[in-house]
Simulated scan of single mutants.
Amino acid sequence: MESESGLGLADTSAKAGRKIKGLSDTEMADLDKWPCPDEGAFSEDHRVIYLNRKNAVKLYVSGRSAEAISSHCGFTLSHVYRLITERCLCPHPDGLIYGWRALVPNVHIRPYRRQRLVKPNESGHGASGALQTVLGLHPELRKAFEKRILASCPPHKLGAVKRPRQAHWKWFLDELRKLGYEQQNKWPFNTQNNGYVSICNYMNDVLDANPKQAARVLGGEDAGKKLIAGDGVDRPVTKAFQRVEMDVH
């Protein structure tokens, strides 16, 4: 795999390359405007896979040949086309497209959907995809829950900056009770831990997909601002913990 700088990809606009349905002649034709994950947080293996996919997409959009894409990245044209149309251009829960976030290894664009009723066994197994099923049935609940997870705390209420996951979990259970889930003994009320692990994992996924909001929730309003602030000398800071400040006496 070659680096992006060695492939002549200075122009990341789709206008001069291939015409792609849903991309060309739209605001997202400029790939530099695509939402991007925190690439510095990847493991080395995931970073290699991600950058290889990213290079392939840029090569495809710029109009490079099938031979060039296969040689540089090992992908066929049809595979890269599916990466773009079936992953990158899919709508993200935050209202944007997935963009480069869709190329991160193990990111699920279309959540698992159950075909059978959720009936966990005595050991608690058999509830895979239950949370996504519930959220799919109640889109307004999904929206309200994600808004709650990503909500920024007022800077003057320092004690409320770190919101415990248990509080979100209890709120979610209360909303399901209003919908009659507990009365009907539906998931998560038919499990030992009332879906705590699945719900907490979902919270983590929402925060991981929205690093700026996550920084505000976990570190307050100032932390969110520092993600986009510059130090006045070097390039703007774009990642959490990229800049370190030190007071010397």
Rank of each mutant, 00 (worst) to 15 (best):
P155E: 10
P155W: 04
P155Y: 08
H156P: 00
H156V: 11
K157D: 07
K157I: 11
K157G: 00
L158T: 15
L158K: 15
L158M: 15
L158V: 15
L158P: 06
L158S: 13
G159A: 10
G159H: 14
A160R: 05
V161F: 06
R163N: 09
P164M: 10
P164W: 00
R165G: 12
R165L: 14
R165D: 11
R165Q: 14
R165E: 08
Q166N: 13
Q166K: 15
A167W: 08
A167S: 08
H168K: 12
H168N: 13
W169E: 00
W169F: 10
K170H: 12
K170Q: 13
K170D: 02
F172G: 00
F172T: 02
F172L: 06
F172M: 03
L173R: 05
E175P: 00
E175M: 09
E175I: 01
R177W: 08
K178L: 14
K178D: 13
K178P: 00
K178M: 11
L179Y: 04
L179I: 10
L179P: 01
Y181V: 02
Y181E: 02
E182S: 07
Q183G: 03
Q183W: 10
Q184M: 07
N185E: 13
K186M: 12
K186T: 06
K186Y: 08
W187G: 01
W187N: 03
P188H: 01
P188K: 04
F189C: 04
F189R: 10
N190L: 08
N190H: 05
N190G: 01
T191F: 13
Q192H: 11
N193W: 09
N193R: 15
N193D: 11
G195K: 06
V197T: 01
V197K: 09
V197Q: 09
S198R: 12
S198I: 03
I199K: 05
I199C: 08
C200Q: 01
C200K: 05
C200I: 06
N201P: 06
